[in-house]
Design a protein around this nucleic acid. Structure first.
Lengths: 334, 334
DNA sequence: GAATGGAAATGAAAGCATTTATGGACAAAG
DNA sequence: CTTTGTCCATAAATGCTTTCATTTCCATTC
């Protein structure tokens, strides 16, 4: 069943059928009804590919992330997909991994598919070395690129992120003023936001004249046992800390498990602050104090901006949200 | 830059360019090279929409799930996307929610997009009442439908799932023979697999002549605190149990938190078994004993089957995997 | 060495199902 | 009688795939 069949059966031209389909003006109510009834009768649906060819769009957005099973990224994708669907767009999901090469490939895949926009979810898409970010600029030549949790100043690239630096700085500051001075920073990534968080911690410590303590976990993202092990080793080597700021909730959870293993009481003997305020924050006993980085709001803003760009070809280039410290059981009154 | 431009610059017909592009035989090495060099020189990429129109496919699979941020579903999506991409397919993600109406809409959306296949991820897509599953049969009229963790006997519908019934039955049996007789079953869903799990528990209890104890949690999927609360209330009402089988890891985690809240020692005074063997199993202290339902293998088999269907129009209709009980800290030696 | 057959290489043209620009017909308004 | 505006049809454009017919080339055969 094509538009030709419908036009024939309705006794009009295909152009008129198309106009009815697309709600254009200049078609009398009478013919509109006639066409609609024929369409309904034969359950006609326009061919999406032909439509794509004619309109040069299939209203599709490419969502790219390193690993869509990551708790935080999965949540972001969930929000984005919903919001984009509400705006009449489909989402093509593409997991790129962490290698620059595979990322370039994934991006090409999306561009070849002629998506209307690309969303890069996760701060790890921005490399420190400016030249490595060229792959993003190349993509932006063809289609708007939205960065969630990363920032890059370039034409046709839009950045939406949370002020990780200030969030961590303030959280660290509050822990310090609550009387805890030996605070360990536990992190596992040197991504764009990873760096921001770390310097937030470092500067807060410095501002109070305290000696920073950092521990880097190089294992995989999900290896909670490995994280716990590493903290236990730290303990064996005699390192003492009564506060711990983690770069994400998983690391924070590992800290709680570490404490439980050794019988260290949380929060009495060890205060822990996580990051992301994800479901993991509810998993531990006591529950995690964690920094909420407003993921849903970030996504909504990203979607809105993308829609603006797609319609007016103009949108707010960069937006920064501020995070919230959500107090729960792993910290004493701050 | 179109195929016409290339054909002109290479001094061949567009048909030849197309043949080169699609790796058809019957084109001399000499012309192939000439065409390829022109393509390279002008960085030509075929227009995906025109291609879709000609081939009547854009090599796209629709992945549908209720909520892609769900830990378990997100993992499934991750595996599927990777595997499909390896086979040269793109994925359109569509979260349908849990309502029949919105599901029907989402399915229509995917069908209109002319995807080559649809994957329904999650056992909640199968309704008990046969007539409610018609929406799946309708879709299967147009495109193959793959069910991950659900089963439905129908033309063009393929089911891949884990034997949840036996997994839970055996796990319960092992807990019983280890000497624990008062076992609570904690669940939150009556989906297809939810039912299977429950009857696995019930039958195991019955087989040993024991009185079953069931507790249903009606809150949202992620409300761990609510789950914990509910168990605490149960305790207040005087219900005693020394074993707990949970329908998923989140419920199991809530059980561990419940025990920690009351100072009940796990596993000495309470044994807990979760389901899914997800990352959550690593989150608690002690870590969760959990049933692994072979998600990656399920996904791989699903992808393979779908590829078979898409090429030969023939694939294995139904496959059932068996689960593994992964022993960790929340159970004593079983 | 010419004739023949068959396979390989190529081109022309017909789809594929839309959108959209152009312009014609007709009615109402001036 | 001309202008304006509404409604609609014709036809072009979109960029590819694929069938079918034609040409070219090479190996046989006599």
């Amino acid at each position: 069943m094509t538009i030709y069949d419908i036009s024939e059966k309705a006794g009009v031209s295909i152009a008129t059928v198309s106009r009815v389909l697309n709600g254009s003006a200049n078609v009398s109510e009478e013919t509109r009804q006639r066409v609609l009834s024929v369409i309904e009768k034969y359950e006609y649906t326009p061919n999406a590919f032909a439509r794509g060819l004619g309109l040069n769009t299939m209203r599709t957005i490419g969502i790219m992330c390193a690993d869509s099973s990551d708790l935080y990224l999965a949540k972001a994708i969930y929000y984005l997909e919903q919001q984009l669907r509400e705006n009449g767009y489909h989402c093509i999901l593409c997991c790129s991994g962490y290698e620059l090469n595979t990322r370039r490939e994934s991006l090409d895949l999306l561009l070849q598919q002629k998506v209307d926009g690309i969303i890069l979810v996760g701060s790890n898409y921005i490399y420190e070395q400016e030249s490595q970010n060229k792959y993003i600029l190349d993509a932006a030549l063809t289609t708007p690129v939205m960065l969630l949790n990363g920032a890059l100043e370039a034409p046709n690239v839009y950045s939406i992120l949370c002020d990780d630096y200030t969030s961590v700085q303030e959280a660290t500051g509050r822990m310090i003023t609550s009387g805890i001075h030996d605070i360990l920073y536990f992190y596992n990534s040197n991504s764009y936001s990873g760096k921001k968080k770390r310097s937030g911690y470092l500067n807060a410590m410095k501002a109070h004249g305290l000696e920073p303590m950092q521990e880097y976990f190089s294992g995989t993202h999900e290896d909670i046992s490995g994280m716990t092990e590493q903290l236990l080793k730290l303990h064996q080597r005699g390192q003492v800390f009564h506060g711990l700021i983690a770069a994400d909730d998983m690391l924070a959870l590992a800290a709680v498990k570490y404490a439980q293993t050794l019988g260290i009481r949380v929060p009495d003997e060890l205060s822990v602050i996580g990051y992301n305020n994800s479901i993991l924050a509810q998993c531990s006993y006591p529950e995690l104090t964690s920094i909420d980085n407003k993921l849903e709001a970030l996504c909504q803003h990203l979607t809105d901006t993308l829609m603006d760009v797609l319609t007016d070809n103009y949108g707010i280039k960069n937006t920064m949200f501020s995070g919230d410290l959500i107090l729960r059981g792993t910290t004493k009154a701050l």
